[in-house]
Nucleic acid binder design. Structure first.
Lengths: 161, 161
DNA sequence: CGTAATTAGATTGTGCGCAATTGAATTGCG
DNA sequence: CGCAATTCAATTGCGCACAATCTAATTACG
């Protein structure tokens, strides 16, 4: 297959399109794979990510969770409200800075971590690649994200989200 | 469960979590990168994917688009309605099978492809990797998706794409 | 032929994701 | 101290995703 300069543009467009579809498809495939695994836990995928963040470090303000996940309050506020209603987290105003709402794990929320441990194993099988491959993929995705989020970072304030 | 490899379990969980965050973050970074580029075209990212599918092949039934993108009618119906309102596509019932609604590009929709050509270039720069690297990443994502989508299913009729 | 099963698409309801706005609390600065 | 600017969270509005349900058209089968 030959591609001359004239076709290079088209080729780039093709590749761009394919990358679009690929990342889009892979991300959705990921959430679809998680869905049935998380259902017994009563969690959605984004809620699961929030719980992971809290299992890693309890008692965080909303903003910290938002930074970790790249989400803003518009997404997190209702999500956290649902987690609260599920009895997994509690919200309490920070005494020192009343603007902040700190999110804490309840007993139930803490205990859920044990159940969630099985999820990771199931995913590991679903991904079906070796530890090393998974590490490599993770690193590539992280690198991709970083390249994307700091495009033209020299001057672009880019919500650093 | 005994865990002589007690740390290995934790390690797996960590890796699972990191892969979660990575794919989630990369996908969102992608859509965020596209957003400002697509805004002048009046398209959202999913709408852009639908347009790409139509630029590749015009006059497709909703189902075919859904298969290509992995979306169902619940998502596509309103999305296509918006594209129709934007004057980019038209819908017409298939004469031979009145259940099907075929989506056609309007003149405006076809012409938009020219403008969209610039988007791919901009993304290419944003991704900031070589053609070969982009190809490799694309292939890995496709492979990841395929592993995920056929989890547990021995049947493997190669789901399109 | 006629009824059952299947298929295509639309609709409804829930939950993100994000921009924009609001409101309250805190900080900065004269 | 007092007032403006900033920060944090919540809210609103729009657009996906996806399950579940519905309607209409087509196909299968007795």
């Amino acid at each position: 297959m030959q591609k001359k300069a004239g076709n290079a543009d088209n080729f780039e467009i093709e590749l761009d399109a394919q990358l679009c579809f690929a990342i889009y498809g892979a991300a959705h495939a990921f959430t679809r794979t998680y869905k049935p695994l998380l259902e017994p836990l009563g969690l959605t995928y984004p809620q699961y990510l929030v719980m992971i963040a809290l299992w890693e470090e309890d008692d965080q303000p909303v903003k910290a969770i938002g930074d970790r996940l790249g989400l803003d309050s518009g997404t997190l506020s209702p999500l956290l409200k649902r987690l609260e209603q599920s009895g997994l987290v509690a919200r309490k105003r920070d005494r020192d800075d009343e603007r902040q709402v700190r999110i804490l794990l309840t007993k139930k929320g803490t205990e859920l971590k044990t159940q969630a441990a099985g999820v990771a194993g199931a995913i590991g099988k679903a991904v079906g690649c070796s530890f090393e491959e998974a590490v490599a993929l993770r690193d590539e995705l992280i690198a991709l994200k970083q390249r994307l989020t700091k495009t033209g970072s020299e001057r672009d304030p880019l919500p650093s989200v």
